[in-house]
């Protein structure tokens, strides 16, 4: 895991560190030499976590590959808001084909680069959680299984946002979406078995799997930079709050991503060849309510008659993550 040697407990975040660090340790976003791969002027909502995540990730990938990067993009918010013809925000070679095939398109690009001997060119594929965990799942698994030389980045905003906030298999239990309304005896999304893609990616024993959030730029950049130069299949799952779909304030995007990690609902770790090699510890444990309350998609669980049982079940999931991934610092409780 990437941690700067200096800690900034006075602010409780890692975001102010750059000027105290060596130039070589500064984040890509902090340098004027960054590529602005996803340039300004696109049409994402204010405070869109996906836009932020993509900007961080792709700039880091550009920096790590000496700008020898090609991206394949699935249909979804990121694609729609970045390329309304005749405009494009992408300052890099970029292709959008379909909703469910970005991993395969990227495999094709990688194959073309290999046969042409252009080994310096690196390939990323990117898509939302719906594209990744549902419709593009077969192509993604195939790409992993063949160990194609592609870094796949999933921007997880926990729903089909581009089509108007419907449930995906990455939507958490109890959440309100347009297809899981807060009605009836069990309002919101069902408590299913879940479909946790980072673990599924690990089961393919690919060289590198990691999770990250837009709240920790340095960690995210580090993981992307590390992944981009590994040959073979890589997977990074980035937690990206969606103000529109979640009913949260635009200025809360980073805070929500931070709280998702701190409450244990979104574990941040990395794994090599199917084995976990690093975990971002929780620094200040918080109850899941703190994370849920600022989001209107959970509003039906609170109010006059809070759904205590449901909230307890969600807390139990967070607690299970905390023990499964060892998220607590030794001695912190």
């Amino acid at each position: 895991m990437s941690y700067q040697p200096v800690k900034f407990y006075q602010t409780g975040t890692f975001t102010v560190g750059n000027r105290l660090l060596d130039e070589s340790d500064r984040s890509v976003q902090a340098t004027t030499a960054r590529n602005n791969s996803l340039n300004s002027g696109h049409r994402a909502c204010q405070g869109c976590g996906e836009a932020l995540g993509a900007r961080y990730a792709i700039d880091a990938a550009m920096a790590a590959s000496n700008r020898q990067l090609i991206a394949a993009n699935a249909t979804g918010c990121l694609e729609v808001f970045s390329t309304p013809y005749p405009e494009t925000s992408w300052q890099m070679p970029w292709i959008h084909s379909l909703f469910g095939n970005a991993p395969a398109v990227a495999s094709g690009v990688a194959a073309a680069m290999r046969i042409k001997g252009r080994t310096e060119v690196r390939v990323v594929a990117q898509g939302g959680d719906g594209s990744t965990t549902d419709i593009g799942f077969g192509c993604l698994s195939g790409m992993f299984e063949r160990n194609d030389d592609v870094l796949y980045i999933c921007y997880d905003n926990e729903g089909y946002m581009n089509t108007g906030v419907q449930r995906s298999s990455a939507t958490p239990p109890a959440v309100r979406t347009a297809t899981t309304m807060p009605l009836g005896p069990e309002p919101g999304n069902v408590f299913g078995q879940g479909k946790y893609l980072p673990a599924i990616a690990m089961a393919h024993r690919i060289p590198f799997v990691a999770t990250a959030t837009v709240a920790d730029l340095r960690d995210l950049e580090h993981k992307v930079k590390h992944a981009i130069n590994i040959r073979g299949a890589k997977y990074i799952h980035i937690f990206v709050p969606c103000p529109l779909g979640w009913g949260s304030a635009s200025h809360d995007t980073i805070n929500l991503a931070y709280m998702a990690k701190e409450c244990g609902l979104f574990p941040v770790f990395q794994a090599e060849y199917g084995k976990i090699t690093g975990v971002s510890k929780i620094r200040k444990p918080i109850p899941v309510e703190d994370y849920m309350k600022p989001q209107r998609r959970y509003a039906h669980l609170f109010g006059k008659n809070p759904a205590l049982e449901t909230i307890a079940k969600i807390q139990a999931r967070a607690d299970e993550n905390i023990s499964t991934y060892g998220l607590l610092e030794e001695g912190v409780n």
Binding site: S97, L98, N101, A104, G108, A111, A112, G142
Partner: peptide, 14 residues
């Protein structure tokens, strides 16, 4: 579906 999608990627990459 993947066969044609791979073909799309490789053809677009020349």
């Amino acid at each position: 579906f993947a066969a044609m999608s791979v073909a799309i990627g490789s053809s677009a990459a020349g």
